[in-house]
Structures are given as structure tokens and as C-alpha cells.
Design a protein around this nucleic acid. Sequence first.
DNA 1: TGACTATACCTGTATATACAAGTTAGGATT
DNA 2: AATCCTAACTTGTATATACAGGTATAGTCA
Lengths: 239, 239
Amino acid sequence: MPDSNTATQPLYLKVKRHILSNIGTGKWAAASRVPSENDIVKSFGVSRMTANRALRELQDEGILVRIAGVGTFVAEAQAHAHPLEVRNIADEIRQRGGTHRAQLISLEKIRAVGALAGDFGIAPKSPLFCSVIVHHENDKPIQLEDRYVLPQLAPDYLRMDFTRTTPHEYLIKAAPLQEAQHVLRAVMPDDRTRRLLQMKRGEPCLLVLRRTWTAGVIASVARLHHPGSRYEMSGRFRP
Amino acid sequence: MPDSNTATQPLYLKVKRHILSNIGTGKWAAASRVPSENDIVKSFGVSRMTANRALRELQDEGILVRIAGVGTFVAEAQAHAHPLEVRNIADEIRQRGGTHRAQLISLEKIRAVGALAGDFGIAPKSPLFCSVIVHHENDKPIQLEDRYVLPQLAPDYLRMDFTRTTPHEYLIKAAPLQEAQHVLRAVMPDDRTRRLLQMKRGEPCLLVLRRTWTAGVIASVARLHHPGSRYEMSGRFRP
DNA sequence: TGACTATACCTGTATATACAAGTTAGGATT
DNA sequence: AATCCTAACTTGTATATACAGGTATAGTCA
């Protein structure tokens, strides 16, 4: 029955902004109660569905906690975890406006030994596919990718042309990704790594270890070495 | 008019799962069209608001793209960006079951010079608060925190006891965080850094540069050095 | 042929209403 | 005093309806 909107802005957004501003200024502290749907109906003159949408979306965004039968409350302050994106190297380069070139060092079937077999949870000497690729940005090497793949999940891995698509791109199509783990370290490169990345002596590497799971088993393990002087990861974050 | 539900499961979730399953099996490829709200009304026998909620939530989750007047489509495959968390060091240590100790090296007012003034966007020689803290895990140094703070936003910064709370914890309370940027690099430490972190010669550092914004201005800049041999960042990700 | 228009369809938002189910507090009963 | 029950309030879901505004296409008119 009330009008549709007063200033060309959706009503549920007005309600959301009002709540967010009260939380942002500290007027409504963490764990304190916020107006119920019916309170908002009265104070804003909107329908309950509109109030519900505002509160529900704020819950989905982690700002509020709602308990049926009890009420709606300001969520505890965010764990303050800032996401940093770990992305496909080719996309990353293209987005920067650079040109990507992949140099295939080797692509073969190997036998898992030692820690590698343990990583995959397979028997020692089981077959694994292994690719070694150096990724270039504007013809400067910026990533050495040592990748190991479970043959069952990517049977035609050895026939792929990895100068055209990255293993990463191929794998997310071949083996639906369920989970990924990343570990980030600063390390000194070994001789082979330093040579392939054309690094100076004494220059460190940013190392990303990536493991991806499919159907509960590790589908792929990647070791990504980046020259410290030519590569950095960055991310922006808005709470 | 139709019944409420058939199997104790919300109808909008049924619709969502149906769509997700069609996308998951590849039946509906990326960029292909998905049924309109009215199609879903007919095929599922639900109201348009219910169909709308299912499609809208899938859009919010990045699964679908909706264009008013045109239709609803399967979103292009996710950019495959894996978040890596950049967290408060004290929380991180405690969560691992270790004990955290902060060693205050210095806490003073300085004058911004050179790049620092540029970072903050303030005039050279403007005052800045500066704290230098070494964070220990089980009495081993794992982070050197060089932090610069805008005095206006944290007037009592110099009176804080940073052996009890981290600057990070203090700042998120004093200056509501609006945006944060992180840059990650592998670098060789300078002499001071190597000494404070008790590192061996030739050992690299994982360097995190963090800038946080409040009300459009940079509130704080932090340089976080970690010994490569004793520190790593990791994150898990489920799509 | 080119420009305009009417139409059909789509999403976006908003409302009034309804019923289910969880929680809490207070009152009645035993 | 302990227990049960009810009333009031909360969120969660679902519907029918309405209007606004975006987009594309077919058809009309100049």
C-alpha cells in the first residue's frame, strides 16, 4: 500500500544500509540485538517480505546472525581474514595486458616415489603423469610449474598441447575440482629452478604448493616457483 | 494453492539443486540459457517469487548471470581464484596451539619521508606513528612487523601496550576497516631484519605488505617479514 | 530501405497474506 | 515446588498479485 520507492533506490537496500551504518558506527555492537522484521515493518513502512530480504541478505553476507524464534543479532566481528587470490597464471598475465607463453620442458609418465606417493596416497611406483612448464610474461620467465597428475583422472594428459592451454585449465575441465589447498613459502631455488627461471644467484623464490582434490582423492599436485624479483601476489579486500 | 512441500525441503532449494545438478553434469553448458522464472513456475508448480529466489541466490553465488529483459544464463566457469587467508598473527599462532609473544622494538612518532608520504597521500614531514614489533611463536621469532599509522585515526596509538594486543587488533577497533590490500613477495632480508628474526645468512623472507583504508584514506601501512624457513601461509578452498 | 512502434517476454522490486515451527516467559495445574 | 501449557513473539517459507523497466522482434509507416 505504501509507495514503491522514494528516491529511485530499492527499499530493501535502504534497510540494509541503515543497519550497516548502525553497525559501522558502533552504535550496534557485536552480539547486540537488531530490530526484528516486524519492527522494521513499522519503522520503515515496508512489508515484512522486504524486511526479511534485507535481514536475510545481511545474514548471507555474514553481518548478522538470525535464530528462528529468538531474533536477529550483529555477528561477531569478522575473523578478519583477508583473501588473497591464487589464480591461473595465464589469466593473470593476460589481465595485466602482458603476453603469455608456455615453454614445455618435459611431459612424461613417471613412477611415484617417496613423498610424492604419500602425497597422492597411492602405492610407491604407481604411475603418475608429470609436466614441467616454464611460463613467460613478455618473454621473461615468471613461473616454473612442476605438476603431477593422477592418470586415472586425466587419461589423455600426455597428449595435451600445454603451450596452448595450461594444465590448470585442462584439469578443471577433466576432473571437477572439489577442494584445493595452497601453501606459500619463500625459498632459495635449486640450480635447475634458478637456471630455468633465469635468476641471479642469491635471489629467492616465491613458492606456491597446490594440491587439488576430486572425489576425495588428490587429483593433482603442483609446485609453482616464481622469481622473487619479478613476481608478486596481491589482493584487495572489502569487508 | 499447491502444497507447501513434498519432502521437508524448501522448494527454492529444490529448484536450486535441480539447476546446479544440470550445470554440474554439463547438461547446461556455460553461457547457455536456463529456464526463465515463468518456466520454473510452470514446471515446478511454484510461485514466481520462489523461482525468483532460487535464481537470484544462484546469481549471488556467481553460478548464474541474469539480465533484465533478456534472461538467465549459466555463468562462465569461475575464474578459479583460490582465496588464501592473510590473518592476524596472534590468532594464527594460538590456533596452532602455540604461544604468542610480542617483543616491542620501538614505538614512536616519526615524520613521513619519501615513498612513505606518498603511500599515505600526505605531505612530506607529516607526523606518523611507527611501531616495530617482533612476534614470537614458542619463543622463536616468526614475524617482524614494521607498522605506520595515521595519527588522526589512532590518536592514542603511542600509549598502547602492544605486548598484549597486536596493532592489527587495535586498529580494526579504532579505525573501521573499509578496504585492505595485500602484496606478497619473496625477498632477501636486510641486516636488521635478519638479526631481529634470527635468520641464517642466505635465507629468504616471505614479505607481506598490507595497506588498509578507512574513509577513503590509507589508515595504516604494514611491512611483515617472515623467515622463509619457519613460516608459511596456507589456505583451503572448496568451490 | 529505413525508422518508428507495438508487443511479448524477461527480470527487479514490493506488497499483503498465510502457515509452520522454534523460543521464551508467565500462568495454571498438579 | 515442580510440571505442564499457553500466549506472544520470532524467523522461515510460500503464494498471488502488481507494477516498473529492460530487451528483442515483428510489423507498420514514411
